[in-house]
């Protein structure tokens, strides 16, 4: 490698930048986070996986279940199947959410980030905005694609659901909202634990494992804990008719879930603000 001798194209004015320059603001932090987010391959890959799992699995399961659903022997509603793949698309939202925080700690990048934008609340908010807007759009588009593809097979067997049917349109937008907030949940946990594997384990275990197991708890309080678990409370909004009849009303559940995630993010912010980088 050759060394360029330092040819200075700039001259120094020590006061050029202080205080004349406009203070860096939230939009600058968002633009920076946006570039960071999309300039690593894991983001593209995770987003592609989100679509493949979310839309692809929905179409696949609709294609293979349509006959059974049309046979009259089915004990599930066809409307439960048009967002089936979103259950798995959740994983990619968790991965993206965790990585946007933990990849910075794993690499030491966090120091560059906080040297560039010392206001930690601004950094966290910019990350949250970039992540949630991406997940909202990707989730909604994926849900629509899955619905369109899957419903084609259901229609074929006369059990299709219309977009105007109760809860169908809500579940499309709801999928985007649910993935966005789920991603924020992983972001908050990621900021707290600073370790990719730990953050993924905690969030995936809470949503997929613990969330299912708590329904085994006896009595009314067990049922309530089940309803209030983040994954159970939040996922109702992402499907027209849930497979699990014991969940909260879709929007009520989503409000509970959002509240839980807001609490996690608040704790994450308070810790992040005080912690040495």
């Amino acid at each position: 490698m050759t060394v360029t001798t330092t040819s200075r194209t700039v001259t120094l004015d020590p006061n050029r930048n202080v205080p004349g320059v406009r203070r860096q603001g939230f939009p600058d932090a968002v633009r920076a986070e946006w570039i960071k987010f999309w300039s690593v391959r894991s983001t593209t890959w995770s987003t592609v996986m989100l679509f493949v799992l979310g839309a692809g699995l929905t179409v696949l399961v609709c294609a293979t279940s349509a006959e059974w659903l049309a046979s009259g022997k089915a004990d599930e509603s066809p409307a439960s199947f048009v967002t089936w793949g979103m259950m798995f698309a959740q994983i990619t939202a968790v991965v993206l959410g965790a990585l946007i925080a933990t990849s910075e700690y794993g690499t030491g990048m966090i120091r560059a980030t906080l040297a560039a934008t010392p206001r930690r609340g601004t950094v966290l908010a910019a990350k949250a905005l970039v992540l949630s807007s991406t997940l909202f759009v990707a989730g909604t588009v994926t849900a629509f694609a899955g619905y369109l593809g899957g419903n084609w097979f259901l229609d074929d067997h006369g059990v299709g659901v219309a977009l105007t049917d109760d809860g169908v349109l809500r579940s499309m937008v709801g999928s985007g909202l649910y993935l966005a907030v789920l991603g924020l949940f992983a972001l908050g946990v990621g900021v707290l634990v600073r370790h990719t594997a730990a953050a993924l384990s905690i969030v995936l275990a809470l949503v997929f494992v613990v969330g299912t197991m708590v329904f085994l708890l006896p009595g009314a309080w067990g049922e309530w804990i089940g309803k209030l678990m983040p994954g159970n409370a939040g996922s109702g909004v992402a499907t027209p008719v849930s497979f699990n009849p014991d969940l909260l009303e879709p929007w009520v559940g989503f409000a509970v879930f959002s509240g839980e995630v807001a609490a996690v993010l608040l704790v994450a912010y308070l810790v992040f603000r005080r912690r040495d980088a």
Partner: peptide, 20 residues
């Protein structure tokens, strides 16, 4: 108001994401 325009710093060389 814009810290990088006021102070330029080289921290540990590896304060970078390897994939970027």
């Amino acid at each position: 108001p814009a810290p990088l325009r006021e102070v330029g710093a080289l921290l540990e060389a590896r304060a970078l994401h390897p994939g970027r």
